[in-house]
Amino acid sequence: MIALTLLMTFSAVSANAQSKDRRKSFKSWDNYEITTEKVGVDGTKFVKVWGFGKTVDAATMAAKENAVHACIFRGLPGCATAMSTPPICPNPNTLETHEDYFQTFFAPGGPYLAYVSMTTDGVPSGTDRRKVKGGYKVGIYVQVMYDNLKRKLEADGVARKLSSGF
């Protein structure tokens, strides 16, 4: 009985700590590299983005999250053949204001996955798959359904429509 109580207490503390960790990392989520590869087909952005994780799969998922995060909060840099893209939510307070929304949006297997497709041929490979301290750093090519993402955030009241200013 004592053992069961201890186990339950430990589980509760652990879950709470994980939630706090995630919340903390969510706010400091800015440390990743992203480059625009080329002009994407209509309504999409074609980027190369890096992610970190304990395994290659986890790093790949992190890279996908980063790609969507960049479209929403950071914007995309330009390249030789493409102009830079401003963020969907340029207001720096958006994340704090809608934190619960984005916690759900970026949850594992969350809605963000509907707006990003990996276009890397097979698994991240070659110099795009690096063993680093604590795990792997991978670079993947992704296509972000930028226009759809923007429409979704506007519909959910997170991003402002262009017409709302008039």
Partner: peptide, 14 residues
């Protein structure tokens, strides 16, 4: 052109 080039080209407007 490698497969990755072809896939990249399909994802790009060009």
């Amino acid at each position: 052109a490698k497969d990755q080039d072809v896939i990249n080209a399909r994802a790009a407007r060009v």
